[in-house]
Design a protein around this nucleic acid. Structure first.
Lengths: 255, 255
DNA sequence: CTGATCGTTCGTCATCGTCGAACAGTTTAT
DNA sequence: ATAAACTGTTCGACGATGACGAACGATCAG
């Protein structure tokens, strides 16, 4: 999958270490042998990588089994706070969740994926698998569409080339033209929607966040499809979401 | 500093990548040239590492300058939630902060450092530089002492050998015997204290958390030294802290 | 327009990452 | 109790590959 590069100066040993870390993540911790056969590396190679990573705090060993280390938490919190949006969006998102009772997210694009940087739950918010730090595809999330709609066409194309339009439910948009239409209508009316396109029964509305004319992220509000189905109540809900986005944009411009 | 190892099979290129990541962290993002001269690597080497790390989401480039990527947030949140203590301690810590109005931490030991895995602020809690994910030395924090006091003597020695007893204030304990005495008295009475040993004006009380007879972490409560100076009110405060710790220990044993 | 600086590309050489075999513990099954 | 089948770890040697300096094109300051 990566041997076709040819002249690229990518460091194989570093990528091996990353593969070990990914495996440790997928398997929720594992031993040398398990990782070695999962990646088709030799045991000694895996051991070398693990001990190097452990010496640096990215891995921790508990009597034969290895896990990801707390140094990731250190870097992770730093990266979260380094996002200009975080400090501003956090209180606004929390307030919107309290007002509406639903779950509210703030997401940022990086590497073609939308990542949750902060989240707040309302009183009646439903369960979800989206946590802070979760990466999600942009074609099937309300916030992702909001961001995608405001990128250069080339960039959008590149993102769709890289990640495809994976189908999660019967409602997921899997055709490019369909998605482009959706992005255009969303761009025109100022908000975006994900109607059970990622999880059955879950609908979300998304609004982009602009700073200096550039879209730097988006907020989205998600809840049960039943509750968010009507067009009448949506008007009220949407003005609340757009109002929150507006507050964030203004706050962002003053710091 | 590491060339004296001799026979160790540590992967130099991986450690170089880690050094690049650390530099990116220290400098809050930087360009190739800046990193290269900061680490005394060649520009092309730094570039190779950065592009490899970027291809994997650990670094992101914004027009010439590089920053740490959001993938660290993904891993960081995962590691946080992977700690058995996290889910149990979070609500208990929050409640204690509300009750007392002070700032409360839950910390876990790894690689000889105490790392904050969750934290809650009370209404009158003071400012601090401790965030979730912050690593701190164990000899000068209340939670760190609580954990240190219950490790094997060999382990404690190894930790002090590795990290030393760095002096932060005039109150910091910098001699081993002094620390061992302090750990013993704390172990006997069941709680530990840090009286302005890390930051002037900040005092903290710490209590260990046991699971199956083993200490897996600690909680601590910190506030202004003035407020936490008396011995009378401390009695009340300490029973609240110990009671919270007790709740966590019981909850932990039932999952 | 010019000089200096940036990030990037490229090809070479010597380093050092990889592997298999052997090691020492630990658990499982007989 | 004993052996067989694991585990993680150590070690040395070979050859892939990571590091470097030089040259590149792009950008910015004066």
């Amino acid at each position: 999958m990566d041997t076709t590069d040819g002249s690229s100066h990518t460091l194989g040993s570093v990528e091996k270490s990353i593969a070990v870390l990914e495996t440790l993540w997928k398997l929720d911790g594992a031993g040398v042998t398990r990782i070695a056969q999962s990646l088709d590396f030799s045991k000694s190679t895996v051991h070398d990588h693990l001990s190097t990573l452990e010496r640096n705090g990215f891995v921790v060993s508990n009597g034969g089994t290895y896990e990801l280390g707390l140094r990731f938490l250190n870097f992770g919190e730093y990266v979260k706070r380094a996002q200009p949006l975080y400090a501003v969006a956090k209180p606004a998102v929390t307030e919107l969740a309290e007002q509406t009772g639903e779950r509210v997210f703030c997401m940022v694009e990086q590497h073609g994926l939308a990542t949750v940087i902060c989240l707040a739950e309302g009183e009646r918010s439903v369960q979800t698998d989206l946590r802070v730090g979760t990466h999600s595809y942009m074609h099937c999330s309300a916030a992702g569409k909001a961001i995608l709609a405001h990128l250069d066409r080339d960039r959008t194309e590149a993102i769709l080339d890289r990640w495809g339009l994976k189908k999660f439910t019967g409602e997921t948009i899997t055709e490019r033209d369909h998605l482009y239409d959706e992005l255009e209508t969303g761009r025109d009316r100022g908000w975006f929607v994900n109607r059970e396109e990622y999880r059955p029964g879950v609908t979300a509305f998304g609004v982009p966040l602009r700073s200096n004319g550039e879209v730097t992220g988006a907020i989205s509000l998600s809840g049960p499809a039943m509750r968010l189905a009507g067009d009448w109540e949506d008007r009220e809900l949407l003005t609340q979401i757009r109002s929150t986005a507006n507050v964030i944009e203004v706050d962002l411009s003053f710091q």
